[in-house]
Nucleic acid binder design. Structure first.
Lengths: 127, 127
DNA sequence: GTCCTACTTCAAGTCGGCTTGAGGTCAAGT
DNA sequence: ACTTGACCTCAAGCCGACTTGAAGTAGGAC
């Protein structure tokens, strides 16, 4: 069966029902049909939710996600925007990688004069 | 001079004065002294702001940043937490890197059946 | 001395992203 | 027939992170 109820979606995605309804209202996801009042989703919604989750982690707003992907999970035909978002993401990733390194360094380095440590200061120059 | 007024901080950091006051109220930054009512900051606040900015980009809340770094910008002595945050960040970075690749792929790949494309689906398995 | 400009406080408002609660629907079980 | 449980709608509320606005202050130029 590739059709599931909202409870199943909650169970398998970890996303609360209230959020699913909200996402639907915002046009981020859609249910294939209704069975009485109850929403019936395609299992594909699980992938779409995963996608939305990653985008949210990446710092994109629901509005941006809506622009990047149609509610069926397909990327927007606007290639320029997708490429631009990829570049944005690339910049973010580089900053985060520096910060990760610095956090690790901070966790290891006992120096109280940490702000003077060149390893730590790299990240600040980047931002 | 390593002491600057709030206007100078705004000019050099791009962070609005209202936000600076809010950050001070939340304990994220401090001014070295007051001159009358006016805050006087050390230039070091610019680095702290950069740090806060990166942390925000990384998805950390002000509360978390407060726990990770004292208002002088030094990392928390809680090494375990810093290491944990680094790991968190690492996982985030990996997801974002996949997503970046996928966005680039989506920008290039004309297939409408994009959700079926293995390149694109990788990211979803990760999340 | 008074005007300007840069600053201040404090309370209230805004915005995104949900969550909560009251009250209703519907199919299945006893 | 009635209860239970899973679902529904719709309006209101909440939280984090700020922003805005009204009213005040402090120092310098004229």
């Amino acid at each position: 069966m590739d059709e599931i109820g909202i409870g199943e979606v909650v169970r398998r995605s970890g996303v609360p029902a209230s959020t699913l309804r909200y996402y639907e209202e915002r046009g981020l996801i859609t249910c294939v049909r209704r069975q009485g009042l109850a929403r019936v989703f395609s299992v594909a919604v699980l992938e779409q939710l995963a996608l939305i989750g990653v985008c949210r982690t990446a710092g994109f707003s629901l509005e941006e996600i809506l622009l990047m992907f149609s509610p069926d999970g397909r990327p927007s035909p606007n290639r320029e925007m997708l490429a631009a978002k990829a570049d944005e993401l690339d910049a973010t990733i580089r900053k985060l990688a520096l910060m990760r390194d610095d956090l690790r360094h901070a966790a290891a380095c006992p120096a109280p004069t940490h702000m003077e440590c060149p390893t730590f200061r790299r990240v600040l120059g980047q931002a």
